[in-house]
């Protein structure tokens, strides 16, 4: 059983700030983390490895500093890690990213068959949930998105059974490997590797592939050129032109505040008053 897990190093978006004048992102001091959803994917792959044996390879497309994220995955128990990194990738949108990743995964397949590919449900920076489906389509793998649980894998029969979150319920799906799974959050918890894993991770020789090594012959397929979408503008959300109308009473006592507020809201929004009355009565 060989699983490939796609992970991405992302800025902890809780700590991103926007420059008030230039509207650009101020990244200084913003720590980089592994996209939290990808950890669910990795853990699921590791669990299958515990059950069935086999190998887990993690892969990411990103800048050289993404190495730290890969090492962390190794310390959790992944066997091998590949960083695909090239200036030519700069500006890739999801279509170009899935192209590059699928090319690299094809390259991996030259050495070892890939039975399962795992991705997170989505990233917290790009937030598109498109890269996973993109990779599946390009490799012609069965696509299973929003998987909440891998119920069973039968390597002999090449069969896999999963629970998938759908609108209004859960689908129990059966399909055959190879396939690509995008994992939902909260499905499992990341393990804590032992000391041997840490040593191995710290010493592991990462593979770093540039564009050609990742098996991408045509530079037009990645980076800005390979991206049909073009970002034409980035800006901070506009503050609403008007600040809230503040309700104040002379001594700030809650009762009077509440009564004053109600009077004001209902005078200015008579329909709302009727609406509330209708529901509450």
């Amino acid at each position: 059983m060989h699983s490939v897990v796609c992970i991405k190093q992302v800025p902890d978006s809780a700590q991103i700030r926007v420059h008030p004048v230039t509207n650009t992102i101020m990244r200084q001091g913003v720590p980089a983390i592994i996209n939290p959803y990808d950890l669910f994917a990795l853990e699921e792959a590791l669990r299958l490895k515990d059950q069935l044996g086999g190998t887990v390879t993690v892969i990411t497309m990103g800048p050289p500093m993404a190495e730290a994220a890969l090492r962390k995955c190794l310390s959790f128990g992944a066997d091998d890690a590949i960083l695909i990194s090239d200036r030519a990738f700069a500006g890739s949108d999801t279509l170009a990213t899935s192209y590059a990743l699928s090319a690299a995964i094809r390259k991996i397949m030259e050495d070892m068959q890939v039975d399962l590919i795992f991705t997170g449900k989505q990233t917290i920076d790009g937030d598109t949930a498109q890269v996973g489906p993109g990779i599946a389509k390009r490799l012609d793998y069965q696509l299973l998105t929003y998987v909440s649980k891998v119920v069973e894998v039968n390597p002999q029969k090449k069969e896999i059974l999963v629970e998938r979150r759908a609108e209004g319920g859960v689908q129990l799906l059966k399909t055959s490997t190879p396939c690509l799974i995008t994992m939902l959050e909260g499905t499992n918890e990341m393990r804590f590797g032992d000391l041997d894993d840490l040593f191995r991770a710290a010493r592991h020789e990462l593979k770093v592939w540039n564009r050609e090594q990742a098996g991408i012959d045509e530079a037009e397929m990645v980076g800005l050129k390979g991206s049909p979408t073009v970002v034409s503008k980035v800006f901070a959300p506009k503050p609403r032109s008007k600040r809230a109308e503040m309700i104040e009473v002379h001594d700030g006592n809650p009762k009077d505040l509440a009564i004053t507020l109600l009077a004001k809201v209902f005078t200015q929004h008579p329909k709302l008053e009727q609406e509330i009355a209708k529901r509450a009565l």
């Binding site: 310390s75 804590f192 032992d194 000391l195 041997d196 840490l198 040593f199 710290a202």
Partner: peptide, 28 residues
């Protein structure tokens, strides 16, 4: 060789001599 997210919980002492450390990791 640096490893992170690992706490040294105590020193290993044998015959009054420090011979290593114990950590909070499995096999630590």
């Amino acid at each position: 060789l640096t490893i992170c997210e690992t706490t040294v919980t105590e020193l290993l002492i044998e015959d009054g001599k420090v011979v290593g450390v114990r950590t909070d990791r499995q096999g630590g």
